[in-house]
Design a protein around this nucleic acid. Structure first.
Lengths: 363, 363
DNA sequence: AACGATTGTGTTAAGGATAACTATTTGTTC
DNA sequence: GAACAAATAGTTATCCTTAACACAATCGTT
């Protein structure tokens, strides 16, 4: 009707071909086209190949909006993360994105900036974008979950990763933090260390609580006492690591190793130790957690625990897609626990050369 | 017909309310609802408030799929990056995501993995997701642009960021790499350095070519000769930086400063210098490029150039949205050039204490 | 008093894909 | 050879929102 208002469009605008175009050209109905493209049984092989050929010729791209609208199911997945910086989340997102694309899905990314209100808004945004499912790693401040319950009441699959709702009947992919701490502390013990300190994180966060548990477990295994003055609670930053280390090393009975629940904190501790004239690992061994990128470029390189970021992303997508394809029929909550990997590096290697895993992640 | 197979759905599935529901309840037509919600002039204030109230009561969320299908314009933006790791791209994506959300758009992220074929696929995926516009940072291997021309021929706004198509009639947001290199080299000169070497990157990439130009420009300004043996071409990795530095420092006439076009390479150079017994910055000053996270935690911390990641993301979105809203009417190609910021740190600070900017980026 | 302008609302037809239901032809079975 | 099943393709309604067009009522104007 209305004359399309492009009076002069230098790069001549071409409209994408639709099923109707193909149908017209072949003199068949749109249904036939639709079925042929989705390999429906009711279309003969001859017609199928004709349609496919024409579709390729015109480089037909299905309009996913239309498809999603009709089917009530889009090819979009939503993902909510606290932020996309540092090592961990970009890597997980990378894993998610790769796996999702392989399955023909696109991913919409939202950041909560560690804020519940923002997280709520993200949920709304994703719902109104009609995503087929949501993956979320909770903001630190999230203690109420009404926005997430709403997702489920919509019948939308929801999978948590890394930071999950604890003890609830939810689908989740998490790391076995306790195991990682256990491996790391055991390693320090194996290096001959006997007074192992722990730089702990905020204990209301389960990941840090579990890392502390693993540390304690390893000491118990070895028949060593858990000494209160050897555990310092920090916010896991570099300065606090340095401060804690300073206190320990200037005390009458300093530790001979430190297991930190985070790499930044471990770094601070290491730098402070060296500043005070202690050698790492000779005088005091150090291990961290998270396999931050910088742990391979410090001097010495820092022993740490890898969190399997990519695998976590892949597992999350796999679980979510299963739920989406099951279409609400399976609701046995599933928790996937990934095994962390200890990466032994220079900061914890005693002179006693022994067969250990010195492999670092390839990139 | 087929009995919906959820025999027992514990979390009772509620269907989202649609305009039709609101219309029925108020006894008006859907059009009225639609108009009231989009604040159309033809709806009376009384009716408007009634509709708004009801919409809020039922927490009505518009179905963006349907809206986008009808309007031919979705609230989705596509973004194609080589990868989402390291410092730069996550930060830019972060900036993009934040700015886009503020404007009511969601962002779909794709990775090309530095591969043209993948990039082509990404474009297809975004087109079929019916995004309203695309932001792209080219893969290194991209030399043909048919897939991107297709985007424009669809009438879809396209904005490049960081890695753009050179010399073409395109919209782009880039960093002034030459300026950054100029600032950095000038700073080394101001520190009293007179034999400044350059760790250069692959010269077929414009960013590295421009950084080299800036270096040369600064030397010229200072009336210094550009010596061939003081420029080494590398792939910008840590080992190659170390190798180059080794060669320089074992030569008869070693440089007293190194400007590296990348931080990793600068790091390698710095480590090698120290290994050879040279002190940084006293014997040889060093500066890098990119403001990678690790540059603040090495010892000494590394002087570098910040690439304004967040601003780049914001500017990219702003430009793209302008194009989207202009709806094909403005096609004057626009190039936005961001000014880099020199971050002076320990690796280049001579004993001559002078008033310089020692600020590092806060996080 | 009649007319156009203004205001407020309804009708209807897209937009592209798809699923339920129908209809036709061919092949199979007893 | 009649009945029935399988194979193949078409009709039509639907997903939800929006926009062009139509329509009715109120108002001011000449």
């Amino acid at each position: 009707m209305s004359p399309r208002k492009k009076s002069e469009t230098p790069p001549a605008v071409t409209t994408p071909v639709s099923m109707a175009d193909l149908a017209r050209e072949l003199g068949v109905s749109m249904t036939t086209i639709s079925r042929a493209l989705s390999d429906h049984y009711s279309i003969g092989p001859e017609m199928k190949s004709k349609v496919l050929k024409l579709a390729k010729k015109y480089n037909y791209q299905p309009n996913r909006l239309a498809s999603a609208l009709r089917k009530g199911k889009s090819k979009l997945l939503g993902i909510i993360v606290p932020y996309i910086e540092g090592r961990f989340f970009p890597s997980v997102v990378h894993g998610i994105e790769t796996a999702a694309r392989k399955a023909g899905y696109n991913v919409i990314i939202c950041q909560s900036h560690e804020d519940v209100a923002q997280e709520r808004q993200n949920v709304e945004a994703l719902l109104s974008a009609q995503v087929a499912g949501i993956m979320v790693s909770l903001a630190r401040t999230t203690t109420q979950f009404t926005h997430l319950e709403k997702v489920q009441s919509r019948g939308l699959p929801l999978v948590f990763f890394d930071r999950s709702m604890e003890g609830e009947d939810v689908h989740a992919v998490v790391l076995d933090d306790q195991e990682g701490a256990l491996l790391s502390t055991r390693h320090l013990l194996a290096q001959g260390c006997r007074r192992i300190a722990h730089l702990a994180g905020p204990q209301h966060l389960s990941i840090y609580k579990n890392r502390c548990r693993g540390y304690v477990e390893a000491l118990r295994e070895a028949g060593l006492p858990v000494e209160e003055e050897l555990i310092t609670y920090t916010d896991m930053t570099q300065p606090e690591g340095a401060a804690a280390m300073h206190a320990w090393l200037t005390s009458p009975n300093p530790p001979d190793a430190v297991f930190s629940a985070g790499d930044y904190c471990a770094l601070g501790a290491m730098q402070e130790a060296e500043r005070l004239g202690f050698r790492v690992p000779d005088d005091v061994a150090i291990s961290g957690f998270s396999n931050e990128a910088f742990t391979t470029i410090t001097k010495p390189t820092i022993t740490t625990v890898d969190q399997r970021c990519e695998e976590m992303g892949q597992a999350t997508v796999r679980l979510l897609l299963e739920l989406i394809e099951a279409d609400g029929s399976t609701f046995a909550a599933r928790q996937i626990v990934l095994r962390p990997e200890l990466l032994v590096r220079e900061s914890s290697l005693g002179q006693v050369a022994e067969p250990v895993n010195t492999r670092t992640k390839k990139r």
